[in-house]
Design a binder for these strands. Sequence first.
RNA 1: GCCCGCGUGGUGUAGCGGUUAUCAUGAGGCGUUGUCGAUGCCUCGACCCGGGUUCGAUUCCCGGCGCGGGCGCCA
Length: 469
Amino acid sequence: MGTNTTWHATSYRTHTLEQIQSEGADLVGTEVTVCGFMEANRGKGKICFMDLRDGTGRVQIFLKHGGVSDEELEAAQNLSRESTVQVIGEVAQKRPPKVAEGEPIPSPTYEVVASKFIVIAAAATPLPLGVTDTVSIGLDTRLDNRFLDLRRAHVNAMFTLRSKVLQYGRDHLITEGFKEINSPKIIASASEGGTNLFPMMYFDTPAFLSQSPQLYKQLTILGGMERVFEIGPAFRAENHDTYRHLNEFISFDIEGAWMNDDDVMCVQERMINHIWQCVADNDQDQIDIINHYRESQGDQPITVDVPSLPFARIEYCDAIKMIQESGADITWGDDIDSAHCDIIAEKYPGFHFLPRWPMEMKPFYIHHIPGDTGATGEQLSRGFDLNYGRDEMTSGGQREHNVDVLEQNLRNKDLDPADFSFYTDGFRYGAPPHAGWGLGVARLLMVLTGARNVRETVLFPRDRHRVTP
RNA sequence: GCCCGCGUGGUGUAGCGGUUAUCAUGAGGCGUUGUCGAUGCCUCGACCCGGGUUCGAUUCCCGGCGCGGGCGCCA
């Protein structure tokens, strides 16, 4: 956990379990009160050992005949796994475990010798999934019982890392002058067209759940906010059913004035570089926990390789050429699908940008420079993607700030400018050139942690088949 | 939505036209033990649903439901 965290005593405990270990040498002989989940208990008769776990660490509790009442000892010995308990006792140095001949003697650890033992809430048996069991568990079973799944060390580490990634990303953007905003999630009309929206009733008015903060973050730039970011939900009523799609996801968005697509690509690579560097510097303990689990499953360990700057940039025209040269069937104007991404990723492992997509393929709000054309003479845009392997992380670009062009772009997409007046009106009174991007947080976490399904990196994922828990 | 595969104790699996349905983990009991992947002995617990073929279906066929993988689309 964070090195700067101050764990104040609470009504239920004087110390966290991590404190018992890290401050153990000074605490020996001191009476403490600790709480936690009972991970395992050993021993019958006159003694009982208990592995206690809280959100910070683990400590062994030692109960013995005479040290606690007979009733307390029996309760401890008969307690079911994952029950919550409160223990009052003295910190003591643990007797070292037996080690094989020639093995190094481990550094001292600490335990609590109980004088009082209280069961707070007993766990029912059997558990729907074993928190410490080595058997693998199906994703569906895990998600149905996420409250228990989260108690597993590597799952907990995953979401600890997720919190860190958001924190480091946020910290970095603030150093570059970005301000955090919140845009509405209940909207009257589609923000981009294209994807399907979830309809809802807003009192007596039909409305939708927002698919993107796009138009609203642009309005804040028109409002002189200079640089903004938002970390918030986006909703898409698409029938996709893959390892990387959800119908509700957290989008990490930025928008900045007086910037073009190249400028915000630089912001993005600096931010990702910062996140990776911070994780490498501060959170190797969480990576180790994940690797410990991966090892038990026969998976290769993950390493936090800080990506160097700048990331590769492969313009759309060059990407098409590269794919064609590899023998795949693609023509200028086609989308670059997953199999094509594999071809690019072979030459560019790691993060890489794909800038300068055909204007035809990009949304109406993307900027283009007239006459900036591609291999076939078609108009290029200032839109880009960021990919890693076969997965798209980001979509972004410079935005159109000329209201006449913007309205023409709408008409070109068979959209009626009148439907977007709440947005286009913002461009009639002076508009700075601006650019931005949206990053899929769960997908970024997949790259960092080696997860093969976004559902691993989302607490309570929402897909076509799941709205609970 | 399309293509492919799979549904066996609480969890994860093996297997088969007639079995006492395998193993691990777990749960319950007794014993031993400053244990720490505790340990020894005993016990408990399962073939997704509906229809069909068959003397007999958990096994084969059809349908449903659920899950996993791939694709499209996207972040």
